[in-house]
Write a protein that binds this DNA or RNA. Structure first.
Length: 298
DNA sequence: ACGCCCGCCTGTAAGC
DNA sequence: TGCTTACAGGCGGGCG
């Protein structure tokens, strides 16, 4: 469910809420959520007693930096939520798989009905000869440094909000692929953080069809696509992400997002295009719903 | 290289 | 009032 804007909203709040806190106890109710570890016990041991130095993000992954140099990585999959609760007595929602309790009170809950998401602790690798020391808060906003330090995320592409990219460089990258634009935007190895919803919104704003091949774009179209990508995601972050009718996405405090009202195409089948008034079309593409305007996108 | 399947899961809504 | 089917913001693997 959550894409870059929702995860970034979570990151901003989580940074304020948990930085400097110390983890007292970790409870794992469903081992599937920590399946990368041999056991829940192993996962807990890497967290208990550790303090939180800061919270970063790469694509759709949240990165909680620990004072051990290790990093707690959280991915929400389709249905995951992270909830900050001050009073431990508050009733736990169904599918609360992991609970992190802090020494100063309160807890962080990981809820995920479909269990597509996961949490794991990435252990700080021993320093390689000649390479600069990898840990520290500075590396939390440098995509390249994060990919080097957290080997589990080394396959991810650049982060469109955190990582600088020139139009020329973006053009070269696009022209190396013959894939359709939507598939490429959703390819986490190409660019990290864009999913089904925001790819449709970005392509509408860029005026480009989902099935245009990436290597066919003119210089002007490359610039339009880059601008649309950065601006759409930044705008969605300002609006604290999208919460659709099923209300699956909730922020750290359980509140819904605000960007769904700004959607140009996603979930707007049959409704008039905000630009040309023709009805928004829905097609199936790669097994996913795809929304676009046949008139405004070429 | 790329598009199109499937499975992994639970919940909800629509259709009969 | 069922029961069945389709679909849901993700990801990884396999197959043609």
């Amino acid at each position: 469910m959550p894409e870059l804007p929702e995860v970034e909203t979570l990151r901003l709040d989580l940074g304020k809420e948990v930085t400097g806190r110390k983890i007292k106890v970790v409870a794992v109710a469903n081992g599937r959520s920590v399946r990368r570890h041999q056991s829940a016990k192993h996962f807990r041991a890497l967290l208990e007693g550790r303090s939180i130095k800061g919270v970063g993000r790469l694509g759709k992954y949240l990165l909680v930096a620990l004072d051990s140099g290790d990093t707690l990585v959280v991915h929400l999959g389709m249905s995951g939520q992270l909830l900050r609760v001050k009073s431990v007595k508050e009733q736990k929602p169904k599918h609360t798989h992991v609970v992190i309790t802090f020494t100063q009170g309160g807890e962080l809950r990981y809820v995920d009905p479909r269990t597509f998401g996961e949490m794991f602790v990435s252990v700080l690798q021993p320093k390689v000869d000649g390479a600069p020391a990898a840990s520290g808060a500075g590396s939390m906003s440098d995509g390249a440094a994060i990919r080097r330090q957290i080997h589990e995320l080394s396959h991810l592409g650049f982060d469109p909000i955190e990582d600088m990219m020139s139009w020329d460089r973006f053009a070269v990258m696009l022209h190396q692929h013959r894939a359709g634009l939507k598939s490429l935007l959703m390819d986490q190895q190409f660019v990290a953080g864009i999913g089904n919803l925001y790819s449709d919104e970005i392509l509408f704003t860029a005026g480009l069809r989902y099935d245009r091949s990436a290597d066919s774009l003119s210089a002007t179209e490359v610039r339009r696509l880059y601008r649309a990508m950065v601006e759409t995601l930044a705008d969605a972050i300002k609006h604290r992400g999208s919460t659709l009718a099923d209300e699956q996405y909730k922020d750290l405090f359980g509140a819904i997002g605000d960007y769904q009202g700004q959607h140009q195409v996603y979930d707007r089948e049959g409704q008039p295009c905000r630009r040309c008034r023709n009805p928004i079309v829905r097609v199936r593409h790669g097994g996913r719903s795809t929304f676009f305007c046949e008139h405004c996108q070429i």
